[in-house]
Design a protein around this nucleic acid. Structure first.
Lengths: 341, 341
DNA sequence: AATCGCTATGGTAACGATATCATTAATTCA
DNA sequence: TGAATTAATGATATCGTTACCATAGCGATT
């Protein structure tokens, strides 16, 4: 089977000829844009298959114009930006839409990033936390007829599209996993309270503990803010405690804080996971960088970004019947930072 | 000044009319593709400016076909993939070329990644270390008339395009910086010897030390392999030494190893930077994640990736006179992990 | 039976750019 | 001087799609 080289393969006309119809009808089948009889559709779909036809996106774009989709991202130094961009651009080039990227920190006001994108003429935007939870952002978008998609929000708006994981269940699964390893006294490091997923993750933890009939002491709940440094501070407090009073496991709301905890443990000669198990959340690059590598909840950022672009593109082409909410499956990734009690 | 909305702004015909010439002449000016008189050129450039004309890439692509550029990247978990992709895609969408990404680890044989890309019909590829130093890779590319660009290689081929920083000078600058802080006994952590930049960085260090008339003890040179874990092992050996025998600064060939050293120091209650200064190289996300944040040599990955795509695109459009080697400026970034002796 | 309103299809033009060939003017060569 | 070459420009066709309008067929309504 030959790959399609830079030389274009079959065109819509080839398909039309092969199926004995006009190019327009093929176009209608490809774009599901108008009524085509069942018989024709089958014949054409067969021809497409047979000739291995792939629409030429450049030509389509020349005729219909390109969908511009804006992406706001909060942290250019983020450890998972790579994954996210891979997904977004994969979908973008598959669908032939233009992606505009706007870093949040480049703007004095968070909403300015959105305004910039709107001025550049986007017809859809992807909003990550925390801006995805801002009512003003959604209002602003709507005012300019820009479709806003909440990405990885903890409480997505029902009326607008969203791509996310079930943070609650992810945290709950991790908690049950730790309990399954025999841990009873489990500490939790909360994340930045302005990030909605942080809240859901905390709730997942609390509910899972309750389900298992385990108490959660107040002094086992630490407040972090998602940064490595805050993880460092939590760890120092934690390990200052007497060895026998310490929790045997700690679950942090993200990987950076978990990594910091491991770093401190390492230095204080507290063995991970022998003396304390450490779990994170997100499965960013740092989770497999540190040693021992982090047990964490994998968020399939690549697929999520792909899906987000697909949903926006579809809704902009007003195949409006498309599913608007997509909940990606999380996955518990067991590495070396957790073990039996 | 109105931004160009999704509605296309001026077209080549508008420019032509405004300048009183034919569209073809405008096209020639835009593409520098054939001789145009100086007078015309000025008039047209003025019109372009005036009407704020931007070529419609989709339309161009429809006529001329798209340049496919392949990107091989070695580590999908890399902390700087995000920056790299941002740059590559920025340039890609500016120039209207299609980017195909191929992760190296997905293939049993390193060359398979290249073969896959060639089969997909790319006309240019970006090769990072270590594959950029493989003669076979370059031969394979050439055999299929694919232009191969060495990205961030330590010793780029003269006859083929390359984008890189001056690793030698970067390491040398950092070494001088440490010396300037009063350090005399400086340790060095080498990187994976199969990565050519690692070699250049080591040489930069050695030469700078020699220039300053400082000795480098054999036991101050450690062998790492770019991983966090190898940094951990080096640090353990290092800090096992008596406090007064220890070096007062350590310079690691990349940020991950430097971050590991800080982590160990933190745990062993060795204050960074008071008792030991730690420096890294690359300025990846991890450098500003850890605490104290790493002093490091910034490699402008985003611009480098942009430039790489631009060079390939230009050479594929056979404006072959273009500059083929681009040495990006590094920058010494002073953060909190280094201080006076 | 004439009219209407669908559905299913095709014909044609156009999207905005460039390849190619044709044309004119300017220059060089024998 | 006349022919040949080169440089500068324009006219036209075309890339692969889709928008738009036209048309044919057919059942339902009056």
């Amino acid at each position: 089977m030959k790959q399609n080289n830079s030389k274009q393969g079959a065109t819509i006309h080839d398909v039309a000829e092969y199926a004995g119809v006009s190019a327009m009808t093929v176009s209608r089948v490809v774009n599901k844009s108008a009524s085509v009889s069942e018989k024709m559709r089958k014949k054409i779909e067969n021809a497409i298959e047979e000739l291995n036809y792939v629409p030429n996106l450049a030509a389509r774009a020349a005729r219909t114009g390109v969908n511009k989709i804006g992406i706001i991202f909060s942290n250019p130094k983020s450890h998972n930006l790579g994954d996210f961009l891979m997904g977004a651009f994969t979908a973008g080039s598959k669908l032939g839409c233009e992606l505009l990227i706007e870093p949040l920190p480049a703007h004095p006001e968070p909403l300015d990033a959105l305004k910039t994108l709107i001025n550049k003429g986007v017809s859809g935007v992807i909003l990550p936390p925390p801006i995805c939870d801002s009512l003003e952002a959604h209002q602003l978008a709507r005012k300019h007829s820009v479709t806003a998609l909440s990405f990885a929000s903890g409480n997505p708006k029902l009326h607008s599209p969203a791509v996310l994981i079930d943070d609650f269940s992810g945290a709950s699964a991790m908690t049950h996993y730790l309990i399954g390893l025999g841990h009873k006294k489990i500490a939790f490091v909360k994340g930045d309270p302005s990030h909605s997923p942080a809240i859901s993750r905390f709730e997942g933890f609390m509910v899972a503990m309750a389900e298992a009939g385990l108490d959660v002491d107040d002094d086992c709940i630490y407040q972090g803010d998602f940064t490595y440094k805050s993880g460092l501070e939590v760890a120092q407090k934690l390990f200052a405690k007497d060895k026998f009073q310490r929790p045997t496991a700690i679950f942090a709301t993200n990987d950076e804080m978990a990594a910091a905890i491991i770093a401190v443990a390492h230095g204080m000669d507290v063995k991970v996971p022998e003396e304390i198990s450490v779990a994170g959340f997100d499965d960013t690059a740092i989770a497999s960088t540190v040693w021992p590598q982090l047990t964490t909840v994998h968020q399939p950022l690549r697929q999520m970004a792909e899906k987000a672009v697909e949903i926006l593109d579809a809704s902009l082409r007003k195949n409006a019947q498309e599913q608007k909410h997509f909940v990606a499956p999380f996955k518990l990734v067991e590495r070396e930072s957790t073990g039996h009690c």
